[in-house]
Deep mutational scan, measured.
Amino acid sequence: TLFEALYDYEARTEDDLSFHKGEKFQILNSSEGDWWEVRSLTTGETGYIPSPYLA
Score class of each variant (00 low, 15 high):
residue 18 S to W: 05
residue 38 V to P: 00
residue 50 P to W: 15
residue 8 D to T: 07
residue 25 F to P: 15
residue 53 Y to P: 03
residue 49 I to G: 15
residue 1 T to Q: 12
residue 10 E to Y: 09
residue 43 T to M: 03
residue 36 W to D: 00
residue 20 H to I: 10
residue 1 T to W: 14
residue 48 Y to C: 09
residue 3 F to L: 06
residue 47 G to S: 15
residue 39 R to T: 04
residue 52 P to Q: 15
residue 41 L to W: 06
residue 20 H to Q: 09
residue 7 Y to W: 13
residue 33 G to T: 10
residue 23 E to M: 05
residue 8 D to V: 04
residue 45 E to M: 13
residue 46 T to W: 06
residue 28 L to F: 04
residue 31 S to N: 09
residue 21 K to L: 07
residue 4 E to Q: 09
residue 43 T to P: 00
residue 29 N to A: 10
residue 37 E to F: 15
residue 18 S to M: 04
residue 27 I to G: 00
residue 36 W to T: 02
residue 43 T to E: 01
residue 22 G to S: 02
residue 24 K to H: 06
residue 3 F to C: 09
residue 3 F to M: 07
residue 45 E to Y: 08
residue 35 W to D: 02
residue 34 D to C: 14
residue 37 E to T: 12
residue 4 E to P: 02
residue 42 T to P: 00
residue 19 F to I: 06
residue 51 S to M: 05
residue 24 K to C: 11
residue 50 P to T: 04
residue 48 Y to A: 02
residue 30 S to A: 13
residue 34 D to F: 14
residue 29 N to L: 04
residue 26 Q to Y: 13
residue 16 D to L: 12
residue 9 Y to L: 12
residue 19 F to Y: 07
residue 38 V to N: 00
residue 13 T to Q: 14
residue 17 L to Q: 02
residue 33 G to N: 10
residue 17 L to Y: 04
residue 42 T to S: 11
residue 33 G to A: 12
residue 5 A to I: 04
residue 50 P to L: 10
residue 19 F to E: 07
residue 11 A to I: 02
residue 7 Y to H: 06
residue 13 T to N: 12
residue 2 L to A: 04
residue 16 D to E: 15
residue 45 E to F: 09
residue 3 F to Y: 12
residue 49 I to V: 14
residue 16 D to I: 12
residue 22 G to V: 02
residue 40 S to T: 13
residue 51 S to W: 14
residue 8 D to H: 05
residue 15 D to Q: 12
residue 38 V to W: 15
residue 8 D to P: 03
residue 10 E to H: 09
residue 5 A to L: 07
residue 16 D to T: 14
residue 36 W to A: 00
residue 6 L to E: 13
residue 54 L to E: 03
residue 28 L to S: 01
residue 32 E to D: 13
residue 17 L to A: 02
residue 53 Y to M: 09
residue 16 D to C: 14
residue 7 Y to N: 05
residue 28 L to V: 06
residue 18 S to V: 06
residue 11 A to S: 13
residue 38 V to G: 02
residue 17 L to V: 14
residue 27 I to A: 02
residue 44 G to S: 14
residue 50 P to S: 05
residue 8 D to Y: 04
residue 55 A to E: 08
residue 15 D to R: 15
residue 11 A to G: 10
residue 12 R to S: 09
residue 39 R to K: 08
residue 11 A to V: 14
residue 32 E to V: 10
residue 29 N to W: 07
residue 27 I to T: 03
residue 5 A to E: 03
residue 38 V to H: 00
residue 30 S to T: 12
residue 7 Y to R: 07
residue 23 E to W: 14
residue 47 G to A: 03
residue 51 S to C: 10
residue 45 E to R: 14
residue 4 E to H: 08
residue 54 L to N: 08
residue 21 K to A: 08
residue 37 E to G: 01
residue 16 D to A: 15
residue 1 T to D: 11
residue 8 D to A: 05
residue 54 L to F: 08
residue 19 F to D: 09
residue 31 S to V: 09
residue 17 L to G: 15
residue 50 P to E: 04
residue 2 L to M: 08
residue 34 D to M: 12
residue 5 A to P: 02
residue 37 E to Y: 15
residue 39 R to A: 03
residue 15 D to S: 13
residue 50 P to H: 12
residue 42 T to M: 09
residue 7 Y to P: 00
residue 13 T to K: 11
residue 12 R to I: 13
residue 25 F to T: 00
residue 49 I to H: 00
residue 20 H to E: 05
